[in-house]
Design a protein around this nucleic acid. Sequence first.
DNA 1: CAAAATGAGTAAATCGATTTTTCGCGGTTG
DNA 2: CAACCGCGAAAAATCGATTTACTCATTTTG
Lengths: 353, 353
Amino acid sequence: MAHRQAQQRRPSIHDVASRAGVSAATVSKVMAGVTTVKPENAQRVFDAVEHLGYRVDPLASDMRRAKRRIIGAIMPEFESEFFGQMVSQLESLAEQRGFTLVAASSRESEARETEILARMHDWRVAGVVLAPVRNEHGPAAAFMKANGMTGVLIDRVLSDDAFDTVSADSASASAEVARELIGKGHRHILVIGLGEQAATVRARLDGFRSTALKLAPDVRIDVVLAETDVEPLRAQLRDYFAKGERPTAVYSLFLKGTLVALSEFRRRGWHCPDDISLVGFDDAEWMQVTWPAIAAVVQPVRQIAGHAMEALFARIEGEEGPPIARLEPCKVLMRESVGSPGNVPHSGGGNRQ
Amino acid sequence: MAHRQAQQRRPSIHDVASRAGVSAATVSKVMAGVTTVKPENAQRVFDAVEHLGYRVDPLASDMRRAKRRIIGAIMPEFESEFFGQMVSQLESLAEQRGFTLVAASSRESEARETEILARMHDWRVAGVVLAPVRNEHGPAAAFMKANGMTGVLIDRVLSDDAFDTVSADSASASAEVARELIGKGHRHILVIGLGEQAATVRARLDGFRSTALKLAPDVRIDVVLAETDVEPLRAQLRDYFAKGERPTAVYSLFLKGTLVALSEFRRRGWHCPDDISLVGFDDAEWMQVTWPAIAAVVQPVRQIAGHAMEALFARIEGEEGPPIARLEPCKVLMRESVGSPGNVPHSGGGNRQ
DNA sequence: CAAAATGAGTAAATCGATTTTTCGCGGTTG
DNA sequence: CAACCGCGAAAAATCGATTTACTCATTTTG
């Protein structure tokens, strides 16, 4: 069978060398673009490469170097648009520099996070982009420090004393949300979030609260924070409303919270923005096609990915100096889910036209 | 500086060997669990491993084998829930078997798809899970065949003469959608899709059409198919409605189509399900929290991923025999976006309880 | 013109494992 | 008692590149 031959061993650098009539070392140099090779020999090597369809084996090639051309990426999950885009960006940026990206999901578990990191250390990756499950003080970052790994922390992180960090400017974005809501006349606002991700949640909460209080000292801000999981948050939110609390706006500090809020509104038959307003941190494609379109804070994924990789490669190439904490500006998209309070619907069915 | 030591070279198998007073070969055997090692020596190896914190370098370990313990995954994109979950699943399944998953996104380009595949071939991956941009007859599958790579094709694929395939049973699911819509009394239905993904689109379309016609020979089925991109589809859909066409239900054959349909409905001020019904292929988390909740065909991601990996590892382990085409059953979730035609809303607000 | 410097290339060491081959030794067997 | 087994372990080859050290020429320099 002729097509069986396809399964044969791929040509190695020695096959190329013997066909070109030079040594393997010379072939290696030609492939690396070293200029001290006689043009004639270089040409023979190129011809042999062409004829045999030779390609450098990255695994063998990486064997001899301490830092291999592999970058690790660890994300809490892959299912959301944010991390999906992030992985996609990181992969393309790594590829541009001739690196291979190995991505793994910690599935929101710090234990798994550390395990994955250990495995990446086994691979002697040149660097790691880590979006920690909780924050920069978790066991994963500690592991990286203890093992002298180079890396960059992103997303659920503010700043660190050992690693560069890149994240969205949660505080400023939240301040802008506060400005918008206060400006529309809201004076009783509920903020929901997940306490686990301490650093960012605090930044978002503080940014929101301080600006809101500055603009309207009489504003009432309630906070419903669940510790770790989404379902408890749903329960707490249900309780909160059951007690008769009736804020005019809800600000969700993370995507799943926005979904929870929406589903609770549904349960109670409330409609945005007539009955209650809603803004969420994190944008998603569907938010602009629903009725109403959901207002959201858009994180600059490309910038975060880009600057994370920039910082990472700088460190890989030996850049010294104290860690840098970067904050990327967000965009706030005020869509139809935000209105003015007391703006009682044209009492009828008109709330849908 | 004490913590500088962390950056030191990691211990190799020889370090372990000399500390345990045995040869490297013996250490290798102990690590591999070979039983022909004297218990006493094994114990000394374990002690040395423990003391030095030794871990096998997977890269070096893979050097000597033809098939390395790496699996490649190529998806058209990472941003959607479907492919996000898919990558997550595949990663975890690969890890379970001691393999590392390298994932890359073809970004809906067949050229990129082949490039990525070539790079994975350079890595001598043991196998590839490929979700082709278009279908099983693209250049990527051809490349795999030509190079004797082992792999499994998933998602936008029906069956192949060289590779195992796993995909959702689009035809049956579409038939069920047809049953539901016809059952509710719809007799003028619009189907929208993207022609590019020939195989699956055809299956979904045929499955829907044949069942609908069988149940109601008088049904009118319009089809709006764009060739490659989503925006042309939006334009065509706009034209279609502008001509005065007024189907009572829309069946979207893919996720983005559902978003396009929804946004077109919005533009025209139509509401589901009173003005028009909507079902989409592919489910998403947000679909159950919007008003109305969107009916959708749920693809069994875990089953697809699981069976794809099963098939792949069987082939890696040398299983012979003709390629197997697997179809995984979908679930159809009929949510509020589907109603009966002419069922003019109980003109009031009652449609919200 | 001899000595030192430069250029171009190769053989061999190296990376960190795995696998094959060889070896030593105590115990059988003829 | 010599030839033979078989076991456990060590030595050596291997995987496919890169890099170091070294060898010839050729060229420059004192």
